[in-house]
Design a protein around this nucleic acid. Structure first.
Lengths: 192, 192
DNA sequence: CGCGGGCGTCAACATTGTTGACCGAACTTC
DNA sequence: GAAGTTCGGTCAACAATGTTGACGCCCGCG
């Protein structure tokens, strides 16, 4: 809300309100429309600010994107889970991700023809999928198995959200969790 | 190449040479740089033609993209394979895909924030992964299992090419094929 | 000879990300 | 209190993008 009249104070808040308005508008638009389809001018309009100010604050559209699009999940619900149920629980957790996480994931995937966004996607893959799994595994090829399991888990997100397999999207949640969770479990705790 | 001098005939070939030049230049550039990073003007320059002519021939950049970016694989090497080895052979086939197939896949994934490109990606997923697997399966949930297997297979391509898990990229091919193929096999021929 | 149609070029348009100049108000310093 | 510095903000402009319409050329057909 940058009213042209005289401001009441030099700094309404330490965070400089309009900067925060730009950031939240960008967060919403990038999630909903992705990187390419979101224009700096629309972000500015949504925040009630000037397009030039957006760049002035965040250096570039890409840096604004990187600053707002962070994808993390609570691995807390995974901590107490016994190893034999980890696969099913992880799939359950991924399928239940909210629209925000889905939007960020898709924005990262779609935008990852840009090098820095691709690096962010790689880091996210590492931190969100590989790392939590690897912590629970042991043995000589623990790292490889964590990475294979992460690929498997990502495959489901890909099928549901990127390729949009409509049959899988219509499959009821418990069946999907049971089937795919069993597969994932196979990598985590392979039979002797 | 379209020398400005007088042309030898009205139609040098039925395919109108420069149209083909544009198509092949677009194919190469889209594969190498993706949808967003390739500009119509660069396609035109690479084909030695005028940017306006590119649009005149192909209606729009997006339609040109859709006309050139078709991803198919030879499922011939899968036809004779016994069902018990199908998983491993499919993984082998996917890992060995050439740079062209990789480029098209990535271009489709990155460009799929556009609706029509997303539909092309969905169709490709269906025709390249789901359909060949489903043909080999039987039973009540054959369709679901084929789709789960396709998600699994796509997960490996995602991990290797989109997320670019460097450890997996450095893992030697036979180990990758053996590990991931065994997982895939688990969906195709589940134990009683 | 005329002329219609396909191939190609040129100039222009709106929209994109980004930059630099400018402005006003507030805080600091003399 | 006056001068200056800094910060939040606006405006106009730039180059590059996809796309369109007007124009030109040259062939083969009447």
């Amino acid at each position: 809300m940058p009213q042209p009249g005289p401001r009441t104070g030099p700094l309404a808040e330490p965070g400089t309100t309009t900067r925060e308005a730009i950031r939240s508008a960008a967060t919403r638009l990038f999630q909903e429309q992705g990187y390419a389809r979101t224009t700096v001018r629309r972000i500015a309009a949504a925040a009630g600010a000037d397009p030039a100010l957006v760049i002035r604050y965040f250096k570039s559209k890409e840096l604004l994107f990187l600053e707002t699009m962070h994808l993390t999940i609570d691995d807390e619900p995974l901590l107490g889970v016994p190893l034999e149920q980890l696969g099913e629980r992880l799939v359950e957790l991924l399928v239940d991700l909210d629209g925000a996480a889905r939007g960020i994931f898709l924005a990262l995937v779609h935008g990852s023809d840009e090098q820095r966004i691709q690096r962010r996607l790689r880091d996210t893959h590492e931190q969100v999928l590989i790392a939590p799994l690897r912590r629970r595994l042991s043995g000589p090829d623990a790292d490889l198995r964590a990475r294979l399991a992460a690929a498997l888990a990502a495959g489901m997100l890909y099928a549901l959200w990127v390729a949009q397999d409509e049959t899988l999207l219509r499959t009821d949640r418990p069946a999907l969790v049971a089937h795919y969770g069993a597969l994932l479990q196979r990598v985590l705790t392979p039979p002797v």
